[in-house]
Amino acid sequence: MTAAAPETVETRDAPALEAAFEAAVAADERIEPRDWMPDAYRATLVRQMAQHAHSEIIGMQPEANWITRAPSLRRKAILMAKVQDEAGHGLYLYSAAETLGVGRDELLDKLHSGRQKYSSIFNYPTLTWADVGAIGWLVDGAAITNQVPLCRCSYGPYARAMVRVCKEESFHQRQGYELLLALSRGTGAQHAMAQDAVDRWWWPSLMMFGPPDDASAHSAQSMAWKIKRHSNDELRQRFVDICVPQAESLGLTLPDPCLRWNEERGHYDFGPIDWDEFHQVLRGNGPCNEQRLARRRKAHEDGAWVREAALAYAAKHTGAEPEEAAK
């Protein structure tokens, strides 16, 4: 249900409400839109769902960059369907955010004016066709690692949106892997193209899990609220462990000389991440920040007359042709 902003409750005192909220979260119950919730919980959710939705929408651009140049009709169909899914996922997530009483237009305004962020990974360019594969394998792989636990997030509408997103996204990663495999096993030029893409996307993908746990501003509270279920470093490690054998099967090398199995930890060790680059890209100094935002703004502004026209038409005609009653 997306209806209605929460009501102000005066009949029950705040401590009792807060206790009820905490008890529900502790019991792994879901919080639903009209339930009382702490302001900070609400703000965190709106921020996170909006950022997630924005990432889906901005994330269409680097891949859409290759739709018109896809090298086979099969790949073209797959890519179009994938980019379409991203629009769909953005829509599911904006809907989830709207259950907390913020409109999509308001959120889009915040994206367009730079007041809300999207995932920094989309500020990197797609320079070759192989980048489409690397995004599917690594970027979507990292996203799935992040997202699967969100299906159990304490906020009901977000968890439900994520169930749908994860279900649909399972093809995204596989198509990327398959695409890279075809390149890796293809001509020398194709193999080189695939390796180059992996070289460029590997480190930014690791950054997708966010800053290390000891430097992550929001992590601890989000974990306590069960918005988040695992720490950034935990998820990053899980991702590295999954990717190493996958890269071997691909016949491609991950660009990290420190990567080796650590028997004692039962995990792969990996080299230091360039957090300076991460923070710079986050602050706007990535290779594509301006381009991505400008294109998004332009699409929105160019479409304004269309959205106005549809509203004007609806105002003239509503009620004229009633839809058949529900049966």
């Binding site: 859409a64 369907a81 629009a87």
Partner: peptide
């Protein structure tokens, strides 16, 4: 129609145009 990806006037229309293109 594929050229519209990421440029449609409203998100719902992104999905609609892609369905037709597919």
């Amino acid at each position: 129609l594929g050229e519209w990806a990421g440029r449609a006037p409203v998100l719902e229309e992104e999905v609609a145009l892609a369905n037709i293109a597919l």
